[in-house]
Amino acid sequence: MNASTVTPEPAEAAPADQRAALYAWFATLYARELSEAQLQTWFSGAAEPLFDVLAQAGFAAEVQDMQGAINALRDLPDAQLELAADYTMCFLLDVKSSALPYASCYLGEHKTLFGPEEKAMREKLERYGLGLDSNYPEAADHLAIQLELLSWLAMTGKALDEQELVASLLRWVPEFSQKCQTIVTQVAFYPALSRMLCRLLQEESAALTDLSPQN
């Protein structure tokens, strides 16, 4: 289970490092809109190896949607803007029009920003001695920050904490993902991404339940 044993630059990373990388990838995509440069990287096929791996791992449908989205964007005159507008529609407007990427908007008595979930995240970060990038003026329960933490937990071998955070995310990511599917977007990129994240977390959680000593 402890996957953090460092082997000298393997072609195939250790499972925990893989998870760390994958969560970081999600975090990147949820943190901000893709810049023109980032989008060009995608257009240049940089994501293809990852897509191949993900497709083989059982996310073929989501990968297909995301690839389709990238291909569709290639033909659009304002590709970056269109994808940015998709990002905005999905995550940046108010809670009714968007799937807000904050745990507090799904959990707790009142679905406000900066709810108890946000406080819990801050406390958690503090326990790990982690801080937030001050250039990222966001609430700590933002999905991207939670995924960053998940990535860090995987990378630093805090397996139990990692499991705990996966479970915590699963309390609201399914609703979040479902909401994403209802938003009218130009391309299916973000809805597919959210489905993929949700399934990934669910698979992970299911596996862990099976592996747990009680079973």
């Binding site: 195939e12 499972p15 994958l22 990838w25 990852l50 970060l125 698979e203 992970e204």
Partner: peptide, 24 residues
């Protein structure tokens, strides 16, 4: 059962991620 991505190297992902939002 755990998420395991056959053939996934860190380099595959590296080009697609930004610096972390977390700081020590």
């Amino acid at each position: 059962r755990r998420v395991f991505l056959k053939g996934l190297s860190l380099a595959t992902v590296a080009a697609l991620v930004s610096p972390s939002l977390l700081l020590s």
